[in-house]
Design a protein around this nucleic acid. Structure first.
Lengths: 205, 205
DNA sequence: GTCTATAGTGTGATAGAC
DNA sequence: GTCTATCACACTATAGAC
């Protein structure tokens, strides 16, 4: 570590301070954005509203984010991390079927707890934000492989699609509320994991 | 039928003519709207663009439709009818499993052939337009009942969700294109219709 | 019934002063 | 780095002339 003169030391501290302020404001912007999106949805996140909420001018936002889309992108990444965290406790279950069931339930529970975040992550046009977590798909596929499915990856995608469909129809209100979400989830998990089901008859992959 | 004087007859004909013109314009509006929605999506349907395309002023549109939403609503109804028509040839299949497979495939084929219509019908906030066709659900449920499923309606909803999930993830681009849609559909139909699957173990309904 | 003209409101993003 | 002011646009919907 090189010695510094008192002057050098002082300017270094100043720079660090500035940097901390910058980071703090960026974090504040994300924090408020998160609140707006979670309660009103991405469509309601406007640069003006955001600026008002943090008591800065709209122009100030563009010093920390290139565009509105980049804020959305950051929030989406937060959501992905949140979902991964929700999976973590179940990823270590030894029985692959139990693992799939637990993670499937966790997935849907996340979606119901954070519907607007879920929308942002999986129901918004993909744009440049890169497709959703492949991590989740991998864990699903590994479990199906352990179950000796012929096409583990395809099974993982299809089960994911099943869960997503349940959630998506619920969130858009397209479905009549005849059957509670939890029941649809259990039924679907049964269909995909029941002994003698299509696990050995998969096509493609 | 009451006799009319020649004068009465003439005004009657005039009225009919006017009515036909009215209907024709309304139909024309719908026609152009349909074209815009099918090629660019509902979001791109603006009253200005629509007015330009039919060579009328924006104000004229409001003489035939209360609002933009009402146009969307009419198009949605058209889509529902189109989907019902796509189902019709398969609804009479005697074997319930074959019936479900055929209708499931027809559903997904419709969605891939008319992605923007599908979006409008099933991926747009439900608003006042009333939830999507319950007719489809009924046919699905009937087939599951014929298969002696414990919870036919719940099975129908869950299978629908499965198909919708496949389509929705494809349309938003959230899914990696590892497995073609058709393969996911076959795999899902297998899971739901394989002998020994969860049909007898359903919960809820 | 149809038009022109416009009200009224929203948006994302930027220029230029300080 | 922050602000004010504004550009350039989109939108739905309506008032009032003809």
């Amino acid at each position: 570590m090189p010695r510094m003169s008192p002057d050098e030391e002082r300017t270094r501290q100043l720079r660090q301070h500035k940097q901390r302020q910058r980071d703090a404001l960026r974090e504040r912007i994300l924090e408020v954005s998160r609140g707006i999106v979670r309660s009103e949805g991405l469509a309601s996140l406007s640069m003006r509203k955001l600026a008002d909420a943090i008591d800065y001018s709209p122009a100030a936002l563009y010093l920390h984010f290139r565009s509105r889309g980049e804020i959305a992108r950051a929030l989406r990444e937060e959501g992905n991390a949140q979902l991964r965290a929700a999976f973590a406790p179940h990823a270590t279950l030894a029985d692959p079927a139990a693992r799939l069931r637990a993670m499937g339930r966790a997935y849907v529970e996340f979606s119901m707890a954070e519907p607007e975040m879920y929308r942002l992550m999986f129901m918004e046009p993909a744009d440049a934000a890169g497709a959703a977590d492949t991590a989740m798909l991998s864990v699903f596929a590994d479990a199906f492989a352990a179950l000796k499915a012929v096409a583990p990856l395809a099974c993982a995608q299809a089960l994911w699609a099943n869960l997503h469909g349940i959630v998506a129809l619920e969130l858009t209100g397209a479905t009549p509320p005849a059957t509670p979400v939890a029941a649809l989830v259990e039924l679907s998990l049964d269909a995909w994991l029941a002994a003698g089901s299509g696990l050995a008859a998969g096509s493609g992959d």
